[in-house]
Design a protein around this nucleic acid. Structure first.
Length: 451
DNA sequence: CCTGGAGTTGTCCTA
DNA sequence: TTAGGACAACTCCAG
């Protein structure tokens, strides 16, 4: 009996509009059709998970409960509670690896500690044997006549549906179709094209499907590795595929970090990060979230997010750096906003990448501050991406679209830059340097430390 | 325990 | 315009 629980606590926790829920509902609807066809109709129940299970254990004669492991803090607590309840009913519980290729406890440093650097993690991860994809079962024996609630669309959950188009079509069929197109196309140029947000086939766009389980990580990994064996590939094409696999490993790395450091959604991995005097200016935050900062690449990216539930990886880094290092707003504000909008808003990847962008996470390189104009020239040289999402600037030539205020002829509706990048960068560096010298003396200035 | 090589994604200046 | 080098600068982690 396949069961989907609509967990009201999870829904309440995410300050999201209806976009994510309607995307999920569309995926569920396809899954329900498929399961019904195979002989085991999907059962949907609304409620608190342990209460739903208590009702089912009372209602049915349950022998065993099977589920796939989830590494997020809330999920771990929830699943432990459900397992405990199952035991009191004498129900056998079996859990499985599904969300990742390598689980957080399958790799460790020589000292048995969790990795907090990507490259050593990647070396260890690469050496672990990976599971193969499963085939769809030919037939299932379901439970007849079971009551099921309706598929949770946004309107049923009291969430307004918003955007007109999703960045990708929902469901398993669409996922596999898109994957097949990427695998036989863009994958071989991935290392070169992945950084250009204007290219829709430059990256796989599998992230939303992975998040909702519409395609498995085993499938992506197996197909990529199998392709690597093809003797006709050039050295460059092999590099492209290896780069793609390395990105799958990044996803697993952040699952690893979240599992070992479950506090990171709330607290910076480096204590320095939580000592920074964030300005948290609500007006600036609103300008950022609405794509009205006056920096064309930042605004194009935020509007892509707001209108499609997706944002290209390169510009995620640009807007994150801008929020933290130009606007001096706490990375958690940005993390939460992203998760409320992104169809692929996986907690582990989102928190991991936001902490990286804010220089408070597991990457120990020196402070990096992205220059939004330089990034714009480099990764959207002809302005295609900007014109697609910022129609006010669509008439500007490539020479002036990256800095419209300098041409003296910005779009009539387009705002002037809300902050001066050079100034804000200098200020951020100064505060950061002060914090560092203070933490080197034990968190207090010398005179107070002596007390 | 100590040592030393190394670390996703940059920026800015100069030639 | 572009390539190269200086600067960033602290912790991780394998040997």
């Amino acid at each position: 009996m396949p069961l989907f629980i609509v967990d009201r606590r999870l829904i309440a926790e995410l300050p999201s509009d209806g976009t994510i829920f309607d995307f999920q509902a569309a995926c569920l609807s396809e899954l329900a059709d498929r399961l019904a066809y195979l002989g085991a109709p999907l059962c949907i129940r609304y409620g608190e998970p342990t209460e739903v299970f208590r009702a089912l254990f009372n209602e049915l004669s349950v022998a065993a409960l099977y589920y796939n492991r989830d590494y997020e803090p809330y999920a771990r607590e929830r699943d432990r509670a459900v397992e405990a309840l199952a035991r009191t009913y004498g129900v056998t519980v079996r859990s499985f690896k599904d969300h990742v290729l390598v689980e957080p406890w399958e790799v460790a440093t020589a000292d048995g500690k969790p990795f907090v650097m990507y490259t050593p993690f990647f070396r260890a991860w690469s050496a672990v044997p990976k599971p193969e994809p499963f085939r769809e079962p030919e037939h299932l024996c379901g439970v007849p006549g079971l009551r099921s609630d309706s598929i949770p669309k946004a309107v049923h959950l009291g969430k307004p549906a918003t955007i007109a188009r999703w960045a990708v079509d929902p469901g398993m069929h669409a996922a596999h179709k898109r994957w097949e197109r990427f695998r036989s196309g863009g994958l071989l140029q991935y290392h070169k094209s992945r950084d250009f947000p204007a290219l829709e086939e430059g990256s796989s766009r599998m992230s939303s499907y992975l998040r909702f389980g519409a395609i498995s990580i085993r499938r992506l990994y197996r197909d990529a590795v199998a392709y690597l064996q093809d003797p006709r590939l050039s050295a460059e094409e092999r590099t492209a595929i290896q780069r793609f696999i390395a990105e799958l490993a990044w996803r697993e790395f952040f699952q690893h970090v979240l599992w070992h450091f479950p506090d990171t959604p709330r607290r910076s991995f480096r204590p320095l990060g939580d000592a920074f005097p964030w300005e948290n200016n609500e007006r600036l935050f609103r300008a950022w979230s609405e794509g009205q900062t006056g920096y064309p690449l930042v605004d194009a990216a935020m509007r892509e997010l707001n209108e499609t539930g997706y944002m290209h990886n390169r510009v995620r880094m640009v807007v994150a750096s801008f929020l933290v290092k130009d606007l001096h707003i706490d990375w958690r504000w940005g993390e939460r906003y992203f998760r409320s909008k992104l169809l692929d808003g996986d907690l582990a990847s989102n928190v991991g990448n936001w902490q990286w962008a804010a220089s408070v996470g597991v990457d120990t390189r020196p402070l990096r501050i992205f220059n939004p104009i330089r990034q714009s020239r480099q990764y959207d040289p002809d302005g295609t991406y900007i014109r697609r999402w910022v129609p006010e600037l669509s008439e500007l030539p490539a020479t002036s679209i990256h800095e419209p205020w300098r041409s003296g002829r910005p779009g009539t509706e387009y705002p002037h830059p809300i902050v001066n990048h050079a100034e804000r960068k200098r200020l951020f560096e100064r505060i950061y340097a002060q914090l560092r010298s203070r933490s080197a003396t034990g968190g207090l200035p010398p005179s107070e430390r002596d007390l």
